[in-house]
């Protein structure tokens, strides 16, 4: 079968190639998905550039991408929750990475039926960003009337998080640049802060939850705007100590300033590792079918133009997700 593979680390245009590879074999708990559409995410770009070699060592060549929608064409012996012909979507686990291919085998625990009211392309845009947002805000215990600051509202994760937080009844502040203010408002954010002309710290004050999708100085600044005993959840900032321990970094300490700020305000800081989860995708399916959340697709590329799709992703200018149509 045809697959878009990472052949070396480096510049996108030099590091990707279409290869003929063997069709994946199905383990007892796997389903084989005929891929209809795959979506690409910033992490896919970082892997290609070689920025994650330490954290996510992958053998080269490897097929790229994690997000997929398609049709189940084969099931492993122990799969009981899916049948051939089911229309599904998934964020595949690390060890099964490779959705930019005609077929992908995925453990059935990471798969859900796709929402019935949207296309394959829209469905493929959801899993990674949706799971990241859902798991982060769920960890933070989001509830009705909470004030939540979501950074980068126009990003894949941010645009989902705004809609998810609104569906939970929260009051949402979000930051974005001038060009994106209008469409981010349309996602339902209560107060869209144009970071080019406004200081978000003087607008979003004493919030219950900060969802940090930017990292760097934004992680520390989160403690200036969060209320006492609030929560800061981050998907890009420094690891928290418990998460670091899970990765075998027993001596890891939270950066000093962050630790101080966290203890001064009695605010929990948590780094969220998105984990593939079929049950969470099923929850997202219901929210999509009830139109509490809408998929935001910037552009759909044909499979043959996947490399251009990655170049578009790398430009950082996409409003919503970039999707690649496979079949």
């Amino acid at each position: 079968m045809k697959a878009l593979q990472i052949i070396k680390y480096g510049e996108i245009k030099d590091s990707l190639a279409f290869n003929e590879v063997s069709k994946p074999t199905v383990q007892a708990n796997d389903v084989l998905i005929e891929v209809k559409a795959a979506a690409i995410n910033p992490i896919d770009k970082s892997i290609i550039l070689g920025n994650l070699q330490g954290m996510l060592p992958i053998p080269l060549p490897s097929t790229s991408a994690y997000d997929v929608s398609g049709i189940v064409v084969e099931t492993g012996n122990e799969v009981s929750n899916f049948e051939i012909g089911d229309l599904v979507y998934s964020r595949v686990p690390q060890e099964q990475m490779g959705t930019l291919a005609e077929f992908v085998a995925v453990t059935s625990d990471a798969v859900s039926k796709k929402p019935g009211n949207i296309s394959f392309e829209e469905a493929a845009s959801l899993p990674l960003a949706g799971l990241t947002a859902l798991q982060s805000l769920e960890y933070a215990g989001i509830k009705e009337n909470d004030k939540v600051l979501i950074h980068a509202g126009s990003g894949g994760v941010g645009s989902f998080a705004i809609q998810y937080a609104k569906a939970k009844g929260a009051y949402v502040y979000t930051t974005t640049s001038t060009n994106n203010v209008q469409w981010v408002k349309e996602l339902g954010a209560d107060r869209v802060i144009d970071y080019k002309t406004e200081d978000y710290k003087s607008i979003a004050k004493d919030v219950d939850i900060v969802f940090d999708t930017l990292g760097q100085n934004y992680s520390l600044e989160s403690f200036e705007v969060v209320k006492t005993a609030g929560k800061v959840v981050s998907v890009v900032g420094p690891l928290d100590e418990a998460s670091a321990k899970m990765f075998g970094m027993a001596d890891y300490k939270l950066p000093e300033e962050l630790a101080e700020a966290s203890s001064e305000k009695n605010v929990e800081y948590k780094f969220i590792f998105m984990h593939p989860n079929g049950a969470h995708l099923n929850e997202i399916k219901s929210m999509i079918e009830d139109e509490k959340i809408k998929p935001i697709v910037d552009k759909v590329y044909p499979f043959s133009e996947s490399i251009q799709a990655f170049i578009h992703l790398a430009s950082g200018r996409a409003k919503g997700k970039i999707v690649i149509k496979i079949h």
Partner: peptide, 10 residues
């Protein structure tokens, strides 16, 4: 009863 079109919509 429903059909699914080529784009995956019901």
């Amino acid at each position: 009863s429903y059909c699914i079109d080529k784009n995956g919509k019901e």
